[in-house]
Amino acid sequence: SDEEKKVRDQAKRLGVNTEQLLKWARRQGDEDLVRIVERLLRS
């Protein structure tokens, strides 16, 4: 999905993997991002 591509691009920009991005999203309190990243991790 578009959202998932955006998440992957953001992880690349930050230089982190998906698990690290999830931690980062939780720290930001970004519920939408957390949900998308969790979906990516499960897929």
Rank of each mutant, 00 (worst) to 15 (best):
S1E: 10
S1T: 10
S1L: 09
S1R: 11
S1W: 11
S1Q: 09
S1N: 09
S1F: 11
S1Y: 10
S1V: 09
D2K: 10
D2Q: 10
D2E: 11
D2A: 09
D2R: 10
D2F: 11
D2M: 11
D2N: 09
E3I: 14
E3S: 12
E3W: 14
E3F: 12
E3M: 13
E3K: 14
E3R: 13
E3Y: 12
E3V: 13
E4W: 14
E4R: 10
E4I: 12
E4Y: 14
E4K: 08
E4T: 09
E4L: 12
E4H: 10
E4P: 08
K5H: 05
K5W: 07
K5L: 07
K5N: 06
K5M: 08
K5V: 06
K5T: 06
K5G: 05
K6A: 07
K6I: 10
K6Q: 08
K6V: 08
K6N: 05
K6Y: 13
K6P: 03
V7M: 06
V7F: 09
V7I: 10
V7P: 04
V7E: 03
V7H: 05
V7W: 11
V7R: 06
V7S: 06
V7L: 09
V7D: 04
R8H: 06
R8C: 15
R8M: 11
R8Q: 06
R8A: 10
R8L: 13
R8E: 07
R8S: 05
D9S: 07
D9K: 08
D9F: 09
D9G: 07
D9A: 12
D9C: 15
D9M: 12
D9L: 12
Q10F: 14
Q10I: 15
Q10T: 12
Q10A: 13
Q10K: 08
Q10W: 15
Q10S: 05
Q10N: 05
A11L: 14
A11H: 06
A11C: 15
A11P: 04
A11K: 07
A11E: 05
A11T: 04
A11Q: 09
K12W: 08
K12M: 09
K12P: 02
K12I: 08
K12R: 10
K12D: 04
R13K: 08
R13V: 06
R13P: 03
R13T: 04
R13S: 04
R13I: 08
R13G: 03
R13F: 08
R13D: 02
R13A: 07
R13H: 05
L14D: 02
L14W: 10
L14F: 07
L14K: 04
L14P: 03
L14H: 04
L14V: 03
L14C: 15
L14N: 02
L14T: 03
L14I: 04
L14R: 03
L14Y: 05
G15W: 11
G15R: 12
G15K: 10
G15N: 06
G15C: 15
G15T: 04
G15E: 03
V16E: 02
V16F: 15
V16C: 15
V16I: 13
V16M: 15
V16H: 09
V16K: 05
V16Y: 15
V16W: 15
V16T: 03
N17I: 14
N17H: 06
N17S: 13
N17Q: 04
N17F: 14
N17D: 08
N17K: 07
N17P: 06
N17W: 15
N17M: 12
N17V: 13
T18V: 15
T18S: 07
T18A: 13
T18Q: 06
T18M: 15
T18F: 15
E19S: 08
E19A: 10
E19K: 12
E19W: 14
E19M: 12
E19I: 12
E19H: 12
E19D: 09
Q20N: 05
Q20T: 08
Q20W: 14
Q20L: 09
Q20K: 09
Q20D: 08
Q20H: 04
Q20G: 07
Q20F: 10
Q20P: 01
Q20I: 06
Q20E: 12
Q20S: 05
L21F: 05
L21M: 03
L21N: 00
L21V: 01
L21S: 00
L21K: 00
L21D: 00
L21Q: 00
L21E: 00
L21R: 00
L21I: 03
L21C: 13
L22V: 02
L22Y: 03
L22P: 03
L22E: 01
L22G: 00
L22R: 02
L22K: 01
L22T: 00
L22S: 00
K23S: 11
K23C: 15
K23A: 14
K23R: 13
K23I: 10
K23M: 13
K23Q: 13
K23L: 14
W24Y: 03
W24S: 01
W24K: 02
W24L: 04
W24H: 02
W24Q: 01
W24E: 02
W24R: 02
W24T: 02
W24V: 02
W24P: 01
A25D: 00
A25I: 12
A25L: 14
A25T: 01
A25K: 01
A25W: 12
A25G: 00
R26V: 06
R26I: 11
R26T: 05
R26H: 03
R26E: 10
R26G: 02
R26L: 09
R26N: 02
R26D: 02
R26A: 03
R26S: 04
R27M: 14
R27G: 13
R27Q: 15
R27A: 15
R27T: 13
R27W: 13
R27K: 13
R27S: 15
Q28G: 01
Q28W: 14
Q28S: 10
Q28A: 07
Q28P: 01
Q28T: 12
Q28M: 13
Q28H: 13
Q28K: 07
Q28F: 14
G29N: 05
G29Y: 13
G29M: 11
G29C: 15
G29S: 04
G29V: 13
G29T: 07
D30N: 12
D30R: 12
D30G: 13
D30E: 05
D30L: 15
D30V: 14
D30C: 15
D30Q: 08
D30Y: 15
E31A: 10
E31P: 12
E31Q: 10
E31N: 09
E31V: 11
E31H: 10
E31K: 12
D32M: 13
D32C: 15
D32L: 14
D32F: 14
D32A: 12
D32V: 12
D32N: 13
D32P: 02
D32I: 14
L33P: 00
L33Q: 00
L33N: 00
L33S: 00
L33T: 01
L33C: 06
L33W: 03
L33I: 03
L33F: 05
V34M: 06
V34E: 02
V34N: 01
V34Q: 02
V34G: 01
V34W: 06
V34K: 02
V34F: 06
V34R: 02
V34T: 02
V34I: 11
V34P: 00
V34Y: 05
R35M: 04
R35L: 04
R35I: 04
R35C: 01
R35N: 04
R35S: 04
R35D: 02
R35K: 09
R35Q: 05
R35A: 07
R35E: 06
R35V: 04
I36Q: 04
I36P: 00
I36L: 12
I36W: 11
I36N: 02
I36V: 05
I36M: 11
I36A: 08
I36H: 03
I36K: 05
V37I: 14
V37K: 00
V37R: 00
V37A: 02
V37P: 00
V37Q: 00
V37W: 02
V37E: 00
V37D: 00
E38V: 08
E38K: 12
E38Y: 05
E38L: 14
E38D: 02
E38A: 04
E38F: 05
E38Q: 07
E38N: 03
E38W: 07
R39S: 04
R39K: 07
R39W: 13
R39D: 03
R39H: 07
R39L: 08
R39C: 15
R39T: 04
R39V: 04
R39F: 10
L40R: 01
L40I: 09
L40G: 00
L40D: 00
L40N: 00
L40W: 12
L40V: 05
L40A: 02
L40F: 12
L40E: 00
L41Q: 01
L41H: 01
L41K: 01
L41P: 00
L41V: 03
L41D: 00
L41F: 03
L41G: 01
L41S: 01
R42W: 10
R42M: 10
R42F: 10
R42C: 14
R42L: 08
R42P: 01
R42D: 05
R42N: 04
R42A: 08
S43N: 11
S43E: 10
S43W: 13
S43H: 11
S43M: 14
S43A: 11
S43T: 11
S43L: 13
S43F: 13
S43I: 13
